[in-house]
């Protein structure tokens, strides 16, 4: 898209990219030939945002503005116009991401859903006592993995030589609770989320006393 000079050429590339997204949804089966997939804008826009983020088009905003301003208004009422509007929306969402997040936090006391909410991932805080900081990692944790599996995975990943001194905790409103070896962290997460509470998982030295940031204590 960026290489093309003509705004209409760029628009064609954008439509091809859109087609790609829809084809991915179809799992590259023959269904793609049969026509539109039953995915409306409710789902398409978030996906487009995701794609824009992950494919790293730095100039997305410039490209969108370029097309927006140069393409004939009559074309704007067509399919190309629609997806250009979507691209523009995606850019706008990303530009205002932080403000939107903050506004949401104050309005509904909630946050944007993230990958770590999904079954299969877990966001874990790993305090780095030497540097007085906390490392946040979102790691793939399958629902059937118990605490012992998770601990050994983290110990291996972070080259911790004395895993017996470490424990796996979950923190709700600033209260730490240690998980037993047999607990499944994903089950715990689901349970707490059902209660509409936010929880944080932490992997830390048993004897250590961590001063958690305010966002965790909330």
């Amino acid at each position: 898209m960026q290489k093309a000079y003509s705004p209409l050429k760029k628009l064609e590339h954008l439509l091809q990219a859109t087609q790609c997204i829809y084809q991915c949804l179809n799992g590259n089966t023959d269904e793609a030939i049969q026509g539109p997939v039953a995915v409306g804008a409710d789902d398409f826009l978030p996906m487009l945002i995701y794609v824009v983020v992950h494919c790293g088009i730095i100039a997305a905003e410039i490209e969108a503005d370029y097309m927006w301003d140069l393409i004939n208004p009559a074309v704007m009422n067509t399919e190309g116009g629609y997806y250009l509007t979507s691209l523009n929306s995606a850019v706008l969402v990303l530009k205002n991401f932080k403000e939107m997040q903050e506004a949401q936090n104050t309005q509904h006391e909630s946050r944007l859903p993230s990958i770590s909410d999904m079954q299969g991932f877990l966001k874990i805080a790993i305090p780095d006592e030497l540097r007085d900081s906390i490392i946040w990692k979102t790691l793939p944790v399958r629902p059937n993995m118990n605490t012992r599996d998770v601990c050994s995975m983290i110990a291996h990943k972070f080259k911790i030589t004395n895993p017996q001194d470490y424990g796996f905790y979950y923190i709700v409103r600033g209260v730490e609770t240690k998980l037993n070896d047999s607990h499944c962290p994903q089950d715990v997460k689901t349970e707490i989320m059902l209660k509409n509470q936010d929880c944080v998982f932490a992997y830390k030295r048993l004897a250590s006393n961590i001063a958690w940031p305010l966002s965790v204590k909330k």
């Binding site: 829809y22 995915v39 409306g40 399919e79």
Partner: peptide, 11 residues
């Protein structure tokens, strides 16, 4: 119905 890429835009 004309062919469109996806269901977000239809004609």
């Amino acid at each position: 119905g004309e062919a469109t890429i996806g269901a977000a835009f239809l004609t």
